[in-house]
Design a protein around this nucleic acid. Structure first.
Length: 428
RNA sequence: GCGAUCGUAGCUCAGUUGGUUAGAGCGCCGGUUUGUGGUACCGGAGGUCGGGGGUUCGAGACCCCUCGAUCGCCCCA
């Protein structure tokens, strides 16, 4: 328990350590490796922007903006916001830096994001995502490539029991017609809907489709489907996406109720969701979507840019990390301990040289132990879990003695190093 | 914003219907044993029982407030 005068961490922030931190790093490393295979270029973005960047991208009216952004005034009384997503900032950079010249632009990034929400399982105020966007590509093959990469990331993380749920929201006209039909359909049974959904009827009727309330669910199955309202172009686009996914070998399932909360989404919308009853679903609790995204052809205009097609996704690193299983620390190769304090300088010298041996990337993973009684030092060395233990001791006559203990009768790599690369010393 | 559960050593937790100096395991430190050795045994340090107020002869236990955590609802870019 922290002392009362120790400042507490901010609600919803995490101090990630040990196995969790290793899993986190594994997710990031895997993402970095895979995105290079697809030639997504790395971008580094500011963690905060003018509030306008997000409020205009997301839409002023939603309570997402009014309640759930981490906004504050700086010393010049300008309203700034800690980024709640990557997309809006990347769109802003695309417009302000003239990245149009690189279109179609494939970019990837990862880092912390901030939303002023109540923390729960898999949901934090400061959380972390990996993110990929293709900007300036109107063709459905861009959606396919983006999804193929997402699928590969998840598979290379070793995550099982997760399925790509796919839907189309159509173009602007399709979407508006569908929305009107839904309002008509649910409006007719308004009184039988949950209180929340009666509210959603006004604010966000599409969201009724993924309500958890049984009172709503019984109407959802027979609700109007987007397919009935798709224009020929929108239908052709979706068909091209699905056939492309089949060609890429990406498994998917149609999810007619999958929608996006924001108006700028068009055409493709998708989420990778754990299968019901899977280990992944059990591990995640109620916050189950691990990767989500879609096509946001309407976004650039809301930021004052020319109409620009784009598609992207983001995935929560914490949620992915919960699914990758145990990722241990790297095996410790060798631990060096000084049996008496006279041997400490030798100990420092040896452990340093072991770590740089063989050049970058090839050094021994090494620790040293120089505290406690001689017996304690050996006990610590034994418990460290190293393959090899080197004991250093300076004799009364000032000469150095060393002895190498090798676990499990493996051959000693350190002994070889000591013979060739360490100042010759007397062996005990 | 709303709801439920929880908050005792560094960590994981015990603490009976409120009753003397608050316990265990692990970890840490020291010692004995062993004696090229991760063992076993002994000992030690470490707690304003989240904080504040109240009830009571007496509160870690009961009541109120507060802070925090966990999980869920809303929302989900």
């Amino acid at each position: 328990m922290a002392k009362p005068n120790t400042p507490q961490a901010i609600r919803g922030t995490q101090d990630i350590f040990g196995a969790d931190a290793e899993a986190f790093a594994f997710v990031v490393e895997t993402f970095e490796r895979v995105r290079k295979l697809y030639r997504f270029r790395r971008v580094e973005m500011p963690v905060f922007e003018k509030t306008d960047v997000f409020s205009r991208a997301i839409g002023e009216t939603t309570d997402v903006v009014s309640k759930e952004m981490y906004s504050f005034l700086d010393r010049g009384d300008e309203s700034l916001t800690l980024r709640p997503e990557f997309t809006a900032g990347i769109a802003r950079a695309y417009l302000t830096n003239g990245w149009q010249q690189h279109a179609p632009l494939k970019v990837a990034t990862h880092g912390p994001l901030f939303r002023y929400e109540r923390p729960q399982k898999g949901r934090y105020r400061q959380f972390h995502q990996i993110d990929a966007e293709i900007i300036g590509a109107a063709e459905p093959q861009a959606d396919v490539e983006l999804l193929a990469m997402a699928d590969q990331v998840i598979r290379e993380l070793g995550i099982e029991g997760v399925t790509l749920h796919l839907n189309t929201l159509g173009d602007g006209d399709s979407r508006d017609a569908w929305r009107a039909a839904l309002v008509g359909y649910f409006g007719a049974v308004r009184g039988e809907l949950s209180e929340d959904s009666q509210e959603r009827l006004e604010k966000n009727p599409l969201r009724i489709l993924d309500s958890k309330d049984p009172r709503d669910r019984k109407f959802v199955a027979d609700a109007p489907k987007i397919d009935a309202f798709l224009s020929d172009e929108a239908r052709a686009f979706f068909d091209a996406v699905t056939s492309g996914l089949d060609a890429a070998g990406v498994k998917w399932a149609r999810a007619e109720s999958l929608v996006r909360g924001l108006d700028y989404y068009r055409h493709t919308a998708f989420e990778f969701v754990p299968d019901e009853g899977s280990a992944a679903a059990a591990a995640l609790g109620s916050q189950s979507t691990i990767l989500g995204g879609g096509r946001y052809d309407g976004l650039m205009e809301s930021l004052g840019g020319a109409p620009t097609p784009a598609v992207g996704w983001a995935a929560g690193i914490e949620r992915l990390a919960m699914l990758v299983g145990e990722v241990g620390d790297d095996q410790l190769d060798v631990v060096v301990f000084a049996e008496n304090d006279e041997a400490i300088p030798y100990c420092i010298d040896l452990v340093t040289k072991l770590r740089v041996a063989g050049g970058p990337g090839d050094g021994f993973i090494a620790e040293m132990i120089v505290t406690g009684s001689p017996k304690k030092r050996f006990q610590k060395a034994s418990k460290a879990g190293a393959r090899e233990i080197v004991r250093l001791h300076v004799e009364d006559n000032g000469s150095l003695a060393y002895h190498v203990h090798v676990q499990n009768n493996e051959t000693s790599q350190v002994t070889d190093f000591l013979k060739h690369d360490w100042p010759p010393v007397q062996k005990s």
